[in-house]
Nucleic acid binder design. Structure first.
Length: 527
RNA sequence: CGGGGUGUAGCGCAGCCCGGUUAGCGCGCUACGUUCGGGACGUAGAGGUCGUGAGUUCGAAUCUCACCACCCCGACCA
């Protein structure tokens, strides 16, 4: 490839000198195609969803499995998820929560107890009906043993409110038992018609918090606290700006009084809900008869919340920052932050470089920076450069004979692809600052993109024009009714992503009906 | 669930329409040698239930049917 590229460069110079500009353009184009092919990733411009799929698969994050709608999360993808988990878990513990585990299988009858909850999930449940297989009499492998039918079918949890509230009934008698602040890390199954790796799969991993409180105010405060935890995590760890808001009635969680959410904007101008926190009121307490006696000896139903984020965050992370060269990861969530690539001809050179790399590695590790020394001898440096760009390693350090002579290394950052020579003594300090800088730069870039992609509109015509043009978040007035939202959704496929919290109060008129409105809401087409 | 497409070596594909030796090609892989500052090259080699199952036929990657999976578009959806 290097050879071909060099040849092209020579050719370009040659043609430039002798032939017309048209010829020149032609050669440039060939050179571009070769480069693009070599990178193996569809460009965002050509096909955004193919670009996304390419990144997930080619960066080794996940694969399709033999099971419809279910994915295999590969080690590199899972390592990122573990970083996400570890930090969220820390934040949950800091806010007083404990982890526990509830069953995967839920008795069907539990689902019928909360009316709107049933309605919300009934259409996407996987159901266990039998408990035994037997050998087929015709010798065609195993079949379901019809005699082993369950008395009551079991539902594979799409979410755990019902089993948890059924359990909480036995845990709660007095106000002294409250609050209960529990989180569970688990898998859930929602039988989706159309799936996409990480963004919507039939089975996914998540955490679900389920808390019980003595008062409404306390439960609402918990709901808000957790959506703020999610927002903080998204912004500080994922470098992804989010809008905090509440959901309109039609977008609300099945069984909730209020749903708070964080909404992020992806590079294609579509919105992605990245986390939700629900104030459940006394709905589940009533459905499962969970009462407590107050200090005054009065019996009352318990107040509830639930909140969750899932492996969908992986999809958000990928789409928030990555480029046509591959994945781009914020340093705080990168499984490995710095990779060393040696450049050498002889064994002797390699051993000298290795010695230096081990010193530098150690100095980075002392600062808590994770590193990898790629000394595979069957691959050329250029190949490794491309590979680590594809996998989104935040920082790459190349070190060769010339560096040994000059006492330098070449440091490349993934976010801007800029390279810099740095003296070996300064590497640890430089990289430490660089990682912070990359984390911030990714956030700032995403904020700028979101700002550029957010449009205020005051008429329905304008609304539709922006939606079909640049997309993104659209801030518009809405009369607050379900009917209006429904019409807009049907006509434009845009939904209300959220009603921003702390949004500026501003009198206006609904873009569809012209009725008065006191605040703009966020519309977008969404994942 | 409806419409369209795909499935042949780890990956990307040709062959299928018009059935017929031992199913090819590129990349990757293994060994050796030369290379190594942006996706190296040579030589030799390994690697295949042609998605699965049935059927038609003397003979099926190729024809027929069913099923499975994936992709795109719709419907559905936290």
């Amino acid at each position: 490839m290097v050879f071909i590229t060099h040849l092209l460069v020579i050719k370009i110079l040659f043609y430039f000198a002798i032939f017309t500009a048209v010829e020149f353009m032609y050669i440039i184009q060939i050179s571009y195609q070769i480069r693009a092919m070599a990178k193996e990733i569809t460009s965002r411009k050509d096909n955004y969803s193919q670009w996304y799929n390419d990144i997930v698969i080619k960066a080794g994050l996940a694969d399709h499995s033999a099971v419809r709608g279910c994915m295999v999360i590969k080690p590199y993808g899972y390592a990122i998820w573990e970083k996400i988990q570890a930090q969220l878990d820390r934040m949950f513990k800091e806010t007083g929560h404990q982890n526990a585990y509830f069953p995967l299988l839920i008795p069907k009858s539990f689902f019928s107890k909360e009316a709107s909850h049933v309605e919300g999930f009934a259409k996407e449940c996987a159901i266990v009906t039998h408990y035994r297989l037997k050998n087929d009499v015709n010798g065609k492998g195993v079949v379901v043993d019809e005699e082993a039918k369950l008395e009551e079918e079991l539902i594979i949890r799409p979410t755990s409110e019902t089993i948890i509230w059924n359990t909480y009934r036995t845990w709660i008698q007095s106000y002294r038992d409250l609050p209960i602040l529990i989180n569970q890390w688990a898998n859930v199954v929602r039988w989706e018609m159309r799936t996409r790796l990480f963004l919507r799969t039939a089975e996914f991993l998540w955490q679900e918090g389920h808390t019980a409180h003595a008062t409404k105010e306390e439960a609402i405060a918990e709901t808000k606290q957790m959506v703020n935890v999610y927002a903080k995590f998204a912004q500080e760890w994922m470098s992804m700006p989010v809008i905090i808001g509440t959901k309109s009635e039609s977008e609300r969680f099945a069984g909730a009084i209020d749903t708070y959410c964080i909404e992020a904007l992806m590079q294609d101008g579509k919105a992605l809900q990245a986390g939700t926190s629900h104030f459940l009121g006394q709905n589940f307490a009533k459905a499962f008869d969970v009462k407590f006696s107050s200090k005054e000896g009065v019996l009352d139903y318990v107040w509830a919340t639930s909140w969750g984020v899932s492996t969908r965050l992986m999809g958000a992370l990928i789409m928030a920052h990555s480029d046509d060269n591959g994945l781009v990861l914020p340093p705080k969530l990168a499984p490995t932050q710095v990779v060393f690539v040696p450049i050498y001809k002889t064994e002797e050179e390699l051993s000298k470089i290795s010695e230096k790399v081990h010193q530098l590695k150690k100095s980075l590790e002392l600062k808590g920076i994770t590193t990898l020394f790629d000394n595979r001898d069957n691959l050329k440096p250029g190949f490794k450069f491309a590979e680590y760009e594809l996998k989104g390693f935040p920082v790459r350090i190349a070190i060769g004979p010339k560096d040994l002579e000059k006492g330098t290394v070449e440091i490349a950052r993934r976010d801007t692809l800029e390279k810099q020579f740095v003296s070996q003594e300064n590497v640890a300090d430089y990289v430490e600052k660089l990682l912070v800088d990359i984390q911030e730069n990714l956030f700032n870039k995403a904020v700028n993109f979101r700002t550029d992609s957010t449009t205020k509109v005051d008429t329905y015509e304008e609304f539709k024009k922006v939606l079909d043009g640049k997309g993104g978040f659209i801030l518009a007035h809405w009369d607050g009714t379900r009917e209006t939202e429904e019409i807009i959704k049907e006509e434009t496929k845009a939904t209300i992503r959220c009603i921003p919290i702390g949004g500026i109060k501003e009198a206006g008129n609904c873009i569809l009906t012209g009725k008065p409105s006191s605040q703009r809401v966020v519309f977008a087409r969404a994942y």
